[in-house]
Design a protein around this nucleic acid. Structure first.
Lengths: 332, 332
DNA sequence: TGCCGACTCTAGAACGTTCTAGTGGCGCGC
DNA sequence: GCGCGCCACTAGAACGTTCTAGAGTCGGCA
C-alpha cells in the first residue's frame, strides 16, 4: 500500500505552492528570507500534503546530524534510568539521541559500529568495557564521552560519579551506626569497581579499621552477590557495602534465606539507587548517582566538543549522595 | 580535530584504488560484477583508509533503509527484556533496529515522531497507548506492528501473547493448589489489561467460582499494587492473580509488611516473567511471555509487510507459559 | 532621475551513495 | 574472419535536501 505512492517531497510542496524548491526549504527550516504571505502559503500546502522532511537528505547535504549516539546495556537498570535524563538533556540543547543497546547477544563493538553508520556527531558510552586503546581510536574520529568510567586518555572525555567518595559515604554511614566489621563485595572487572573498592579501603583506614578491611570478589549481577554471600557467611561481618544494587539484592536474598535478619544481624548498602532498589519490597539503602547531573554534563560536554568549544577539564566528577532506606541499622 | 579532515568517501577509495566510484560501490556492497583481483585491491584500500559507508547517502539513493523503528518504555522491565530478542531477530533477517524510548518526560507521540524522521521502513510499538485512530493513520503510511496489545484495525498488525489464556493459566494453577477465593488486581487502562481480566473471569466461571470473582482496580506500577493491597486486605482472599510483576511486587511488600505469609497465607501470581521477578529475592510465580517468539514473529511480520508479501493472519497470538516459583502454594 | 540597499525569490551545484545504461575487450562457435 | 555473448568496468543521472550566488523589484533619498 505504502510502496506504490511516493512520499511527498519538498519539490511537491514547492510546485503546489508555486515557489522554488529553495524557497520552500527556507520556509520549512524557518530560516530568514521569505515573505510572510509566501511563508504562510507554503506551510499550509506542506501541512495539506502531509509533508515530512527527509532527514537523510537534509543531513547529507548540511553535513550536520545533531545526533548523539548512545550505547547502553539493557542488563543495567541504572543505564535505563539514565536514558530518561539524557533524552531531556539532549532535547534542551536541540540534539537528538540515537540509541544502540548492548544485550547478552550483542556486544559493545557491534553496538558502537551500528552508531557509526548513523553518522552521529558524538558518542556517549555508558560504562564502556572497551579497552582504552579502542576508545582512543574512536575518539580520534569523533568526540567520545565515557560515562561511569574513568579513561586515561586526553581525547576521551569522562563524566562520572565520584565512586570512591560514594563508597566512603556508605562506610561512613555504617561506622556512624556503630559498625566496625564492614566488608566490601566488589564489582570484578566492571568500570568503577576499582574506585569503589579504593574508596572503601580509604574510609576504613580513616576510621582506624584498616585491620578489618575485607574485600570479597563479586560482579555486577545478582548471581555475583549470591556467590559472594557464600564466601561471606563463613565468618559474617556486621555490615556489607556492595558494588551495586543488583549484586546487593542477591546478597540480601541469601542472607534472609539463611535466617539472618537485615538490618538486625547484617546491614547492607548498595550502589546506584536503581529504580528497583526503591521498590518498597527491597527498600535498599544505597549510594545514589545524580542522574540529571550526569546526563546534563555528558550532553553539554559532547556538544561543546562538537562545536569545538574550549573545554575546561577533561573529566567531570559528580558528587554521589547516600539514600538511607531499610537495609541499614545499628549492629546488635 | 575531527572537524578539519573530511571523512573518507567512496570517491577517495576509488581514486586510490584506481577504479571508478561505481565499481568501488559494487565491491563495497558485495554485489556481482567485479573481478576478484580488483575486489581484493579495493577492499584493501578501503580498510587502509578507514572507509565507513555513509548510510544516509546510501539509503537516500537506494530508497531502502532496512531499518525497523522500535518504541519501548524504559519503565517496563519487560520491554527491555524484549529488546534483546528483537535485536537478534532483526539481525537474522538483515535488518537494523533504531530505538526510541518513552520515558516519564517523553511521551509516545514524541518517540514515534522521532522515528518517522529516521525513515525506518516499519514501526514496532511495544504496548502502544495511542488510540486506534492514530495507529491507523500511521499504518496508512508504513507497516505498523503493535505488540502486547490488540488493535482492531485492518492495517495494523498485532503480535501479542494470549493474555486471556495467561490469566487462565494463573487461575488454573491456583485452583489446582486448592484455592477458591482468588482475586484479580487488574492493569487499569494498560494494553492487555482487559484481556487478562476477562481470562481471569472466564477461568473462575469454568471452575464454578463465578460467585467468588473479585476484581480490584490496579495498574502497571508497584504503587498500583500497593494501593490495591490496601483494598484487598479488608477481606483477604487466599490467592491473587496480578496484572504484572511490578504491581505484584508492590502487593507482596504490603502483604509481608502486614504479617501475612506468602505463600502460606496468600499466594501471589504475577505476569511477564520480567528479569527482576526471577531475582531469588522476589522469586515470583508468574506467567511468562515468550520473548523470542514474540520478537521473532514481530520482526518477520514487519519485514513481510515491507517486502509486501502476502500475510496470512493479521493477528499473531503466542501461547503464554506458567513459571512456578516461590510465591504460590496450597492454602492453609 | 538615478542610485543604492533591502528584501524576496530562484537556478543550480553539492552532499555520498546507488543504479541504469552503456563501452570495450575477449573468447568461442560457425 | 565475423558475429555474438559475457565479463569487467565506467559515465552520469538520480535520490531530497541545503547552500551559494545572484536576479528582480521596490522604496527612499540625494
Amino acid at each position: 500500500m505504502q510502496s506504490g505512492e511516493r512520499r511527498t517531497t519538498l519539490a511537491d510542496v514547492a510546485a503546489e505552492a508555486g515557489v522554488s524548491v529553495a524557497l520552500a526549504s527556507i520556509v520549512m527550516r524557518g530560516a530568514a528570507g521569505a515573505g510572510a504571505a509566501t511563508r504562510e502559503r507554503v506551510l499550509e500546502v506542506a501541512q495539506r500534503l502531509g509533508y515530512q522532511p527527509d532527514s537523510r537528505a537534509r543531513l547529507l547535504r548540511s553535513g550536520r546530524t545533531r545526533l548523539l549516539g548512545v550505547v547502553f546495556d539493557v542488563r543495567h537498570p541504572f543505564h535505563v534510568d539514565l536514558l530518561t535524563g539524557l533524552y531531556a538533556a539532549a532535547g534542551e540543547v536541540g540534539y537528538e539521541l540515537t540509541l544502540s543497546a548492548v544485550t547478552p547477544r550483542r556486544d559493545e563493538r557491534t553496538a558502537i559500529d551500528g552508531l557509526l553508520q548513523d553518522r552521529c556527531e558524538a558518542l556517549v558510552l555508558f560504562s564502556p568495557r572497551s579497552r582504552t586503546l579502542e576508545l582512543a581510536a574512536l575518539a580520534a574520529r569523533m568526540p567520545v564521552v565515557a560515562m561511569m568510567r574513568g579513561v586515561r586518555h586526553r581525547d576521551v572525555d569522562v563524566v562520572r560519579t565520584d565512586d570512591a567518595r560514594g563508597s566512603e559515604l556508605a562506610v561512613d554511614h555504617l561506622v556512624e551506626l556503630g559498625h566496625r566489621r564492614i566488608a566490601h563485595i566488589d564489582g570484578g572487572t566492571m568500570p568503577g569497581s576499582a574506585e569503589r573498592r579504593q574508596g572503601y579501603q580509604r574510609a576504613m583506614r580513616r576510621h582506624g579499621l584498616a585491620s578489618l578491611i575485607r574485600i570479597v570478589p563479586g560482579g555486577p549481577g545478582e548471581e555475583d552477590g549470591v556467590r559472594a554471600a557464600a564466601a561471606l557467611l563463613a565468618e559474617p561481618p556486621t555490615a556489607v557495602a556492595v558494588f551495586n544494587d543488583l549484586s546487593a539484592t542477591g546478597l540480601l536474598d541469601v542472607l534472609r534465606g539463611n535466617g539472618h535478619e537485615v538490618p538486625g544481624d547484617i546491614s547492607v548498602v548498595g550502589y546506584d539507587d536503581s529504580t528497583f532498589s526503591r521498590l518498597a519490597h527491597i527498600d535498599l539503602t544505597t549510594v545514589a548517582q545524580d542522574v540529571d547531573a550526569l546526563a546534563g554534563r555528558a550532553v553539554r560536554r559532547a556538544v561543546a566538543r562538537i562545536e569545538s568549544a574550549e573545554v575546561e577539564h577533561r573529566e567531570v566528577v559528580i558528587e554521589p549522595r547516600l539514600v538511607i532506606r531499610g537495609t541499614s541499622g545499628p549492629p546488635q
